[in-house]
């Protein structure tokens, strides 16, 4: 239980909550698809309650790194420490229940309503009674501004709304760490900001987050740490100011000159 409710319970569902994110650490993480190593010896420390943004070109291993953290893809070697303990020693299902993940293409369940999308794991994984799970889900949806759309199916929601349902779905599990895999890459330009604001709000309230993103503005403003990856390795990491204003490596300089 890493979520604590504050006393203030103001408007419907708009509870001010703080998170108690856990620390996350990667130690010499190497991941491979078959014989091809797509991530080599990546080490990274994410202190509790901080946000790390991972930037870099497509194919640099950013998404693979996230999938190694919650073991959607098993690491080949190295270790992942969640709250100081090896994630590789925990049963994958138990580990994943503690780590929220938001995908580029939302991956909502199309034949479930927004409410059911959020409630599903609450009763099926957490064992919450169904009525309680729905109540819980309703509050989560209200938090992301979707109280009125609870009974819509994903196809009747815009991309931004779908992604917010997906965030609510992940948050409902009360995760210790949130992983975002290019969460705004598939959105209408106008809707990107809303989702980024939502993410920034989570960061502010103490969630530990690892965010793979192409939104340099977000990385600069919200991240405590920025990591630049290329060809499966960490090229450079540091504070946003370090990386964006004083890039040391030629590769990052080149990258920034192309994207900024």
């Amino acid at each position: 239980m890493s979520l604590a409710s504050n006393t203030a319970s103001t408007a419907a569902g708009a509870e001010s909550q703080t998170f108690h994110g856990s620390s996350l650490e990667l130690k010499n993480l190497t991941m491979a698809y078959g014989d091809i190593e797509v991530l080599r010896n990546v080490s990274l420390a994410v202190p509790p309650g901080t946000t790390t943004c991972i930037i870099g070109p497509s194919g640099s291993g950013k998404s693979t790194l996230l999938r190694g953290v919650n073991r959607l893809h098993e690491p080949k070697s190295g270790d992942v420490l969640l709250a100081g303990e090896s994630a590789l020693q925990v049963k994958p299902d138990l580990l994943r229940a503690r780590i929220g993940m938001v995908f580029q293409h939302f991956n909502l369940f199309p034949d479930h309503t927004a409410l059911e999308n959020v409630a599903l794991a609450l009763w099926s994984v957490k064992g919450m009674p169904k009525a309680e799970a729905r109540e819980h889900a309703r509050r989560r949806l209200a938090e992301v501004g979707l109280a009125e759309r609870a009974d819509h199916r994903p196809r009747d929601l815009s991309g931004g709304q779908q992604q917010r349902v997906a965030i609510a779905r992940a948050l409902a599990m009360e995760p210790e760490v949130m992983l975002f895999d290019e969460a705004t890459s598939a959105l209408d330009p106008e809707l990107v900001k809303g989702v980024l604001n939502l993410m920034a709000g989570l960061a502010k309230r103490g969630m530990t987050m690892v965010v793979v993103t192409h939104e340099m503005g977000f990385a600069r403003k919200v991240a405590d740490q920025v990591v630049f990856m290329d060809e499966g390795e960490v090229v450079e990491s540091g504070t946003p100011a370090d990386l964006f204003d004083n890039p040391r490596s030629e590769r990052l300089q080149r990258f920034l000159s192309e994207v900024l």
Partner: peptide, 8 residues
């Protein structure tokens, strides 16, 4: 929706 949440 909720300025508390979005932090905006």
């Amino acid at each position: 929706a909720s300025p508390l949440i979005t932090g905006s």
